[in-house]
Design a protein around this nucleic acid. Structure first.
Length: 706
DNA sequence: GTAGGGTTAG
């Protein structure tokens, strides 16, 4: 009897809601067997079993049972089948089934629409979705609780699609449509006679995901007042990202407290939202607590803590969590890689980055845009611009981030013309440049002295793209003017820029004054600089260097005394190199390395050969008023030379040497490294605080302009 | 039959 079957179905579904899925699955099959055994083939009962299979997401059992039904199957059978297809993301099958259903003249009932609306949402197929909405209106079903909930979700999602599409491409009509869609969310919601917690949560999440934070939080209040419903774990995980974005840790903590009081703090969704919220509020310790207190961790919990560490500059920690994730057999997701690779980029850990790249290729994630962009950036930052370019060239779809990464990469490596032509290619591709993309192309211009191009891009920013130039853009142009020797022009440009200049903008001009030996303007600049940033030690050092270079020792000494009085100390110069699996660090004049004697001997031998080749020491770099011999020793012990010499004696012949320095390479070392590269027949890559220098065969990729 | 969390460039 089918009423007996119905009771058993209900019993199984109840057990299923207790998360004992495997038990229910077994029960379902037992029930099916029971039905077959006792009653032979009863289609009425089979339809109930089918709805049970469909609820348990058992695709094959559902389709097999469905195919055994006589034609035409009743509406309940169709809606079960379609639901099953949709929840397995077989969206085209959902629609082809719907079409078959209609061609057999089976009337669609209310149960079939939610799955179809969901399928059209997942397909991002707006036309289909709108026609489904129209059908429900014609059938008078559009205020049905489940259908309306699905419609609200659909309109909220379409709004975010168009918002996101708008960020990368030029489709102005989409933003208008986006507005009407968020309006439709509210219209459907307002029209409903009965709303449940899902209705409220869907609207709240929809507003939150579309950046309508005020409206979202307002709905949470309304939910309690007019809806008489308490926020649940869905509500909380929707609104936590709002406080993450606003860096509002106080209100984030309030939500955390509410979650604890109501027993939601063990929920994995809440957990990862909390980890993320605390990390974005720079409270990594709280993120770690939230992570460790989670009773069950899923892949997303791991992703959140990895991204949290990396975003807070805890690169080694982020890498550590990534390793532990693998060790605990949690399958990494594409996001896991795009979160952890920037850690390699920041640590300049090329070998580690390569290993991760290998892993990515093996898993088959190498076509993921996010991962590819992070790899482009990582290779560029680790000094391997060729690999960066090859990863970029292999990308099928390139979004603005990918373009920006490669343009910035080329800029850092002094390939300014490549950077500029890539920027033009990006525009031809219809990708709209953003704030960062302009930073990249302007940086490229400034590294190569392309004054005219720089002006052209700078002027087009606001005029053609509506991007108001920020400090970084002004700084790049000012830097370029200064280094091109147009010092007065640069001074006027900085004095009249649209934003308040920072000390560092003036510092670049000060450096230019030094390069072009203009002491008078330097004095004017340093006054302006110290007015804004009186503690800027770089300014004192530079000005002192400028005085020294023009042999005004007394003025130089006066500044150094002022520095000492203020307690300002120069940033100690430091270089490091990765040999084998270890990173070796050298300070200027550092004799502490276990191989120091060997390094020193190598440097002496090199110096002899360099001098034979025509190297002349440039002592202008040394700011102290000391005798020539002492100057020679000071230069000889610059940290990059120690690191390079160590690299030469501890790696096999022909290996590229990659050294990183925390401040700019000095002119003398720059000349010296050109000689060294030629003598030892190796490529030497040096990254200073702003760019890469590739030394090869006696010359440098920067063309001595840096 | 409907709703939720985490990514990349400076």
């Amino acid at each position: 009897m089918s009423s007996c079957t119905q009771h058993m179905v209900i019993d199984i579904l109840r057990k299923n809601s207790n998360k004992t899925v495997s038990v229910s699955k077994r029960h379902a099959k037992q029930l099916h067997a029971h039905v077959v055994k006792i009653k032979g083939i009863s289609h009425e009962d089979n339809i109930l079993v089918l709805s049970l299979y469909s609820n348990l997401n058992l695709l094959h059992y559902s389709t097999n049972l469905f195919n055994s039904l006589p034609s035409p199957p009743p509406p309940l059978a169709w809606s079960s089948l379609i639901k099953c297809y949709t929840s397995h993301s077989l969206l085209h099958l959902s629609f082809s089934s719907f079409n078959s259903m209609r061609s057999l003249s089976v009337p669609p009932n209310r149960h079939v629409f939610p799955s179809l609306i969901k399928a059209s949402t997942l397909l991002k197929h707006a036309k289909l979705a709108y026609s489904l909405h129209a059908s429900t209106v014609r059938l008078g079903l559009d205020s049905d609780l489940y259908i309306a909930n699905a419609l609200i979700n659909m309109y909220a999602k379409f709004r975010s699609f168009s918002v996101n599409a708008n960020a990368g491409n030029v489709f102005d009509d989409l933003s208008l449509r986006g507005k009407s869609e968020i309006h439709s969310v509210r219209k459907v919601f307002d029209m409903m006679r009965v709303r449940d917690v899902v209705s409220w949560n869907t609207v709240i999440a929809g507003y939150a995901q579309n950046g309508m934070f005020f409206e979202s939080l307002d709905m949470v209040r309304e939910m309690g007042k007019n809806g008489n419903l308490k926020p649940d774990s869905f509500t909380l995980s929707s609104i936590l990202p709002i406080f993450a974005e606003h860096v509002d840790v106080c209100r984030g903590k309030e939500i955390h407290g509410y979650a604890v009081r109501n027993g939601f703090d063990g929920d994995v969704f809440i957990g990862s939202s909390l980890i993320d919220m605390y990390a974005k509020c720079n409270r990594l310790e709280n993120s770690l607590c939230a992570f460790y207190l989670l009773p069950r961790k899923d892949a997303i919990s791991w992703n959140s803590i990895i991204a949290g560490c990396v975003q807070n500059g805890e690169f080694d920690r982020g890498l550590g969590f990534f390793r532990r994730m693998l060790k605990e057999n949690v399958r990494p997701m594409p996001i896991s890689f795009s979160s952890v690779i920037p850690a390699c980029a920041h640590l300049t850990a090329l070998n580690l980055g390569k290993q991760l790249h290998g892993c990515i290729v093996r898993i088959g994630f190498d076509d993921n845009e996010f991962i590819a962009s992070s790899l482009v950036d990582m290779y560029a930052k680790c000094g391997n611009i060729k690999m960066a370019r090859s990863v970029f060239d292999r990308m099928e779809k390139r979004d603005m981030v990918a373009w920006t990464a490669i343009i910035m990469g080329c800029a850092m490596h002094g390939h300014a013309l490549d950077a500029v032509s890539l920027f033009e290619n990006m525009l031809e591709d219809g990708v709209r440049p953003c704030y960062v993309a302009f930073m990249a192309v302007l940086t490229a211009c400034s590294h190569a002295g392309l004054v005219d191009e720089s002006w052209r891009y700078f002027n087009s920013m606001e005029r053609d793209f509506g991007i108001v130039p920020g400090l970084e853009h002004y700084a790049a142009v000012a830097d370029l003017l200064g280094r091109a020797g147009r010092l007065e022009e640069a001074y006027d440009f900085i004095s009249n820029m649209g934003v308040q200049p920072t000390g560092s903008v003036w510092s670049t001009l000060l450096a230019a004054c030094r390069a072009h030996k203009n002491v008078e303007l330097a004095e004017k600049v340093v006054d302006r600089l110290l007015l804004i940033d009186p503690e800027n030690m770089g300014a004192y050092v530079l000005m002192s260097n400028i005085y020294s270079a023009s042999r005004r020792w007394k003025d130089a000494a006066r500044l150094r005394i002022q520095m000492r009085k203020k307690g300002l100390k120069k940033t100690p110069a430091c270089s490091w190199i990765e040999v084998g699996k270890e990173v070796h660090t050298f300070m200027a004049g550092d004799k502490s390395h276990p191989c120091y004697d060997k390094i020193n001997k190598a440097l002496i031998v090199l110096l002899e050969q360099m001098e034979k080749e025509g190297y002349v020491l440039d002592t202008n770099e040394v700011l102290h008023d000391v005798d020539e011999e002492h100057k020679r020793e000071l230069l000889h012990n610059h940290s990059e030379r120690l690191a390079i010499a160590f690299g030469i004696i501890s790696t096999t012949a022909g290996t590229t040497i990659r050294v990183i320095k925390n401040i700019r390479v000095c002119t003398d070392c720059h000349t010296a490294i050109k000689f060294i590269a030629k003598i030892v027949g190796r490529e030497i890559v040096v990254r200073d605080n702003s760019r890469f220098h590739h030394f090869k065969n006696g010359s440098c990729s920067c063309g001595d302009y840096w």
